[in-house]
Simulated scan of single mutants.
Amino acid sequence: MLVTPSAAGGPGRGRQPALPRVALVSTGGTIASVGRDRLDLTGYAERAEMRAVGALLAELPELATVAEIVTVELPNVPSHALGLADALRVVRTARDLAADPAITGVVLTHGTNTLEETAFLLDLACPPGTPVVVTGAMRPATSLSADGPLNLVNAVRLATDPASRGRGVLVLLDDTVHAARDVSKTSANRLSAFRGGELGPLGFVEGDGAVVFHHGTEPWAARGAFDPGAVGTPPRVDIVLSYLGADGALVDAAVAAGAAGIVSAGTGAGYPTPAESAALDRAVAGGVLVCQATRVGSGRVTPRPAALADGMVTAGNLNPWKARLLLALALTRTRDAAAIQRLFDR
C-alpha cells in the first residue's frame, strides 16, 4: 500500500483557508483502464493496463480547488477478480482512514462489476460519521467522453460536504448519489448503469458542484456493525439460483463443498422449487443456515416466523449477493437465526 500526499490539492497559500483533506483509495477498475484508442469502450479489459492514481490526478487540476488529496494506492485488480478476503482488506484500509480525525472524507475508486458488493461491505464496516464514497466509471480513462474524471471530482465534492455525514457509505456515479445498501448495477454498459432500488437515489451532485439530498437514509442495525480486522476468515456461503424445474443438486453440492450458509435466490417473493425446498430442509437439518432471497430486481422477502424457528432467515430487500456478504459476516459472530434476522431487518 502506497500513501502519499498529492499535488492535486493543498492547504493553500497566503490567506486562503485550508482545504478539507480527503483520502483517495485507488483499486483500479475501468476508471483507471487504458484502451487501444479513444473509441475502445468495451475491449479495454483484455488489455489489463491501468493508470496509477497519480496519472489520473495529474489530469484533474480542478481537484485543487475542492480538497487536499492524500492518495492510498492498493494493487490494481479487476473487480470481478477480487475475493472476499481481498475486498475485506480494501474495506479495512478505508475504515482505518475514516477513523483518522485529520481526514474529512474517504473516496474509493473501484471497478463497477462488483462495486456494489464492496460498497455494501464498507457499509457493514464503517460507522456512520466520516463520509465514505465509492465511485468508478463505465468508460475507460482513455476513451472519448470518459466519465471517470467528473465522477471522481463529484465523489470528492460529496465526501467533503457536511450533509454527507452520518448517512452511511455512499455511491456516486453519473452525478447521482446512492445508498450503498440499496444500489445495484443494472446495465452492462450504459453510463446510468446504477440504480438505487425502490427508493431511488438519495440525491445528486449538480452541475455547479452543489450536493443536493432529496431524502435521508434509514437506520439499520448492521450498518457499521463489523470490524473487518476482527472477523477472521468468513465461512463459505454459496448462492443457489432458482429456475423452472430446478432440482436440489446445487444445494446438495454447496453443502458437500462445506458451505456454512446458503442464500436461496428464489422466484417471485422468494420461492424455490419443491425439490430445492426439500434440499434446503436437508441443509438446515445438517446445520447450514439458509437465507431466503429473491432473484427479481426489487421487492422484499418477508420474515417467516415458522422458517426462523427452523434456522432459516429472510433477506428483506437485499439482493442475493449482498445477502451472501451479510450472512458470511454474521456467521462469524453467531449461528442464532433470530439474531441474524435482526441484522437483515430494516
Results as ranks from 00 to 15, higher is better:
Pro228Ser: 08
His214Pro: 07
Val240Ala: 11
Ala141Ile: 01
Thr93Ala: 14
Gly311Val: 07
Ala249Asp: 13
Gly261Lys: 04
Glu59Tyr: 02
Ser33Gly: 12
Leu97Gln: 06
Glu62Arg: 15
Ala323Lys: 04
Ser184Ala: 11
Thr42Phe: 09
Gln292Ala: 11
Ile340Gly: 12
Ala155Met: 06
Asp247Asn: 14
Thr109Ile: 01
Val34Ala: 14
Val255Thr: 06
Gly136Arg: 00
Arg346Ile: 09
Val134Lys: 06
Asp281Met: 11
Gly129Phe: 06
Leu199Ile: 05
Ala18Val: 11
Val22Thr: 05
Arg333Ile: 06
Arg21Trp: 00
Ser192Phe: 03
Pro201Gln: 05
Pro274His: 03
Arg190Asp: 09
Pro5Ile: 09
Leu82Cys: 11
Val211Ile: 04
Gly129Gln: 05
Tyr271Pro: 10
Leu199Lys: 15
Asp86Cys: 10
Val72Lys: 04
Arg300Trp: 14
Ser143Gln: 02
Gly9Glu: 07
Val22Ile: 14
Cys126Glu: 08
His110Trp: 00
Ala81Gln: 13
Arg38Leu: 10
Ala339Arg: 14
Ala260Phe: 03
Met312Glu: 13
Gly111Leu: 02
Gly297Cys: 08
Ala179Gly: 12
Thr118His: 02
Leu88Phe: 01
Leu56Lys: 04
Gly200Tyr: 02
Thr42Val: 13
Val34Leu: 15
Leu280Gln: 08
Leu41Arg: 08
Ala260Met: 13
Arg190Thr: 15
Leu24Phe: 00
Leu331Ala: 12
Leu152Met: 10
Gly28Tyr: 00
Asp123His: 09
Thr93Met: 10
Asp336Cys: 12
Phe226Ile: 14
Ala293Ile: 09
Thr118Val: 13
Thr142Arg: 07
Leu250Ser: 15
